[in-house]
Amino acid sequence: MLSGRPPSTQLGIDQLLDRLVSGSSRQKRSTASALEKVSEQLSGKADVALKAYSPEGDDWGAGWILQILQRHHPETLDAIPGVSGGWFQMPSSCGIDYSDLQRALLKEEFEEADRLTSCALRQLAGEQAVERGYVYFSEVPSIKPVDLTTIDRLWIAYSQGRFGFTVQSRLLGALGGRYDRLWPKIGWKNDGVWTRYPGSFQWCMDAPEGHMPLVNQLRGVRLMDALLQHPGLASRS
């Protein structure tokens, strides 16, 4: 049965931008690909297009517009107010600057973004976590919600809604809370010997949903469980 609406590939730039804002989840996905094909036209409308989104939110439509420009017309980003310092707002309860994280995600440098995320979590957990080089699950409850929310928002905004702690939490809930079912779902490999990066890890937008950021499970699932149940994330799941 025909819907009566033209496919995304036949829509004009204004229609594509409107669908990216107000379309269904499925429509937004198909629109994302079509919008990249008209990146030249998008470069002349980006500033206006971004006004449909809130820098305080995590709508990946805004993140995708910025990523298309970064891919094809990076010179136009300099002309958009606020982009140089990070278009999405990045509040922190303890003065951490998340600009490098936002910049890495914008450029789709996901391995660097994962490293910066781990570094930020150690800072948030306290001096002892920084000194030892990793976070104990028992240190997670003391982390301020606003920072975890900021980190999660940035991952979601620059991954078409595919990556982030709350994405992992949603998938885990759909699998009955079973981590042994979550690992293959998000493309993590647990062969009994965990390293910092599981085998076959992918640092790209095409990675499985929930693939990033990585949480080391060397000491079991308690760290990831503590993160996903943290009030700053649980309220967003």
Rank of each mutant, 00 (worst) to 15 (best):
108 E>N: 14
186 I>D: 11
159 S>C: 06
149 T>S: 10
106 L>C: 07
168 Q>H: 04
89 Q>I: 05
35 L>G: 07
4 G>R: 08
91 P>H: 03
132 R>P: 03
237 S>M: 12
221 V>E: 15
74 P>F: 09
19 R>M: 07
26 R>I: 11
168 Q>G: 08
205 M>W: 10
17 L>A: 05
116 L>S: 07
135 V>F: 06
122 R>Q: 05
161 G>F: 04
77 L>N: 10
6 P>N: 09
194 W>G: 06
26 R>A: 15
54 S>V: 00
58 D>L: 07
170 R>T: 15
6 P>S: 13
76 T>G: 00
219 R>Y: 15
198 P>G: 04
234 A>H: 09
22 S>M: 01
167 V>G: 08
231 P>L: 03
84 S>C: 02
79 A>I: 03
199 G>P: 02
167 V>M: 07
168 Q>P: 08
185 K>M: 15
62 A>W: 13
221 V>Q: 11
39 S>Y: 15
129 A>H: 03
102 Q>G: 02
165 F>L: 14
128 Q>G: 01
114 D>N: 14
91 P>V: 04
55 P>Y: 02
19 R>I: 00
21 V>H: 09
59 D>Y: 03
94 C>H: 02
74 P>C: 10
111 E>C: 09
173 G>R: 13
88 F>Q: 06
199 G>M: 10
216 N>G: 01
193 V>Q: 11
140 V>R: 09
214 L>G: 01
112 E>R: 14
105 L>S: 08
163 F>M: 11
136 Y>Q: 12
19 R>S: 00
176 G>P: 11
159 S>A: 05
38 V>T: 15
58 D>V: 04
101 L>T: 08
160 Q>K: 14
177 G>Y: 12
131 E>G: 02
227 L>R: 01
188 W>K: 03
20 L>N: 11
62 A>L: 12
186 I>C: 07
123 Q>I: 00
86 G>M: 04
94 C>G: 00
89 Q>L: 14
2 L>Q: 13
131 E>Y: 03
125 A>I: 01
24 S>A: 07
84 S>H: 08
234 A>F: 07
9 T>A: 15
58 D>Y: 11
45 K>H: 12
232 G>E: 03
121 L>N: 02
227 L>G: 10
169 S>W: 04
210 G>Q: 05
46 A>H: 12
44 G>H: 15
166 T>M: 09
186 I>G: 08
120 A>F: 08
171 L>R: 11
145 P>V: 00
46 A>W: 10
177 G>R: 14
158 Y>F: 15
